[in-house]
């Protein structure tokens, strides 16, 4: 029973893929899944969610939350676009890379403030990052002058729309970062301390771990992956927008919880988050594919979140729960 509950997200992913495939076969006579275009579209949608969800997974495992990523993404997108604009029309690769660095610094500055609030000032992360959510939103809108910052850069466009062996670059970037985050969470001391922090702060404190430094690094990591999401956005749409990450925040949080994380911390995996992101991406693309009004995706993702929480609760009941 327990292993079935652990595997439910895999099963659920296969189930909705099967559902849309049968729908496609019977209604349109075509295929849903076995087309390069579908796979690429799902992959890009999943990578957008993942870039916000990867760093967030570690923050949630540690028992915290980071709401500000919605606008760390936007801040990074706008900062990169402005830097490219400052460099002139279709700047060199070196200048684009520099602009990406500027974008990441913008996102990291939000992460630094989060880390400082939560680690040094003991502000609850929900409140602290809700504050920086607003601040980053304002900052992104102010530097962008309230508008979308459009750019002309082939290098930047390749970042958002290029392919390597048929794999979209955004998906490639998200997968590399997912692998790195998986290694960090599953196989390093840092990861073990992150789990321990989520279960019992005293356990890591008494083990001599610098908890403040650890929290700071977690929020920087969360801002970093969200910032990469902003860079990819600017590349994809040849424009930086302050609200680039806003519609994705809910999906990112949902992906982490569908993937097995718990609001109380101490649980969750990167593999789970990756599956969660793909479940949402399949729902998004599948509903568009099947011709339903796209607004149904909000309803569908909302339902999946509720199912995820119910599964998590029944899991606790099956194993007798924590102490």
């Amino acid at each position: 029973m327990r292993s079935l509950l652990d595997a439910w997200s895999w099963l659920f992913l296969i189930l909705i893929l099967g559902f849309f495939e049968i729908y496609a076969q019977t209604q349109t006579g075509g295929t849903f899944l076995f087309r390069v275009y579908s796979l690429q579209a799902i992959g890009v949608a999943a990578s957008q969610i993942l870039l916000l969800a990867l760093g967030l997974t570690l923050v949630i495992v540690a028992g915290h939350i980071d709401l500000s990523i919605a606008f760390s993404t936007g801040f990074a997108a706008v900062a990169m676009a402005l830097a490219i604009r400052a460099a002139g029309d279709d700047p060199s690769l070196a200048m684009v890379i520099l602009a990406m660095g500027v974008g990441l610094l913008a996102a990291l500055s939000v992460g630094f403030v989060n880390g400082w609030l939560v680690a040094s000032l003991d502000v609850p992360s929900f409140i602290g990052t809700l504050g920086t959510y607003g601040i980053a939103r304002g900052a992104a809108l102010i530097v962008a002058g309230g508008a979308t910052v459009s750019i002309r850069s082939d290098h930047a466009r390749a970042l958002g729309n290029g392919q390597v062996l048929g794999i979209p670059v955004p998906l490639l970037i998200a997968m590399i970062l997912a692998l790195a985050c998986h290694y960090l969470l599953k196989h390093t001391k840092f990861g073990a301390h992150t789990y321990a922090l989520g279960a019992n702060r005293a356990s890591v404190e008494r083990a001599g771990v610098d908890v403040k430094r650890h929290l700071m690094l977690l929020f920087l990591l969360s801002a970093l992956t969200a910032g990469v999401g902003g860079l990819v956005y600017t590349g994809r749409f040849s424009a930086g927008a302050a609200n680039a990450g806003e519609p994705i925040l809910l999906y990112a949080v949902a992906a982490v919880f569908i993937g097995g994380a718990s609001l109380t911390g101490g649980q969750g995996t990167i593999i789970g988050t990756v599956i969660g992101a793909f479940i949402i991406a399949v729902i998004q693309f599948g509903l568009v594919f099947s011709g339903l009004p796209p607004y149904w995706q909000f309803v569908a993702v909302g339902l999946v979140i509720i199912v995820a929480v119910l599964v998590d609760q029944s899991k606790h009941r099956v194993v007798g729960g924590g102490s």
Partner: peptide
């Protein structure tokens, strides 16, 4: 009294917490 264990980790990681072997 509270033992300061990390309940979600196995005994090995609790034994080595802060001094993990790699």
């Amino acid at each position: 009294q509270d033992l300061a264990l990390a309940d979600n980790l196995d005994p090995g990681l609790n034994l080595y917490l802060g001094r993990e072997r790699t």
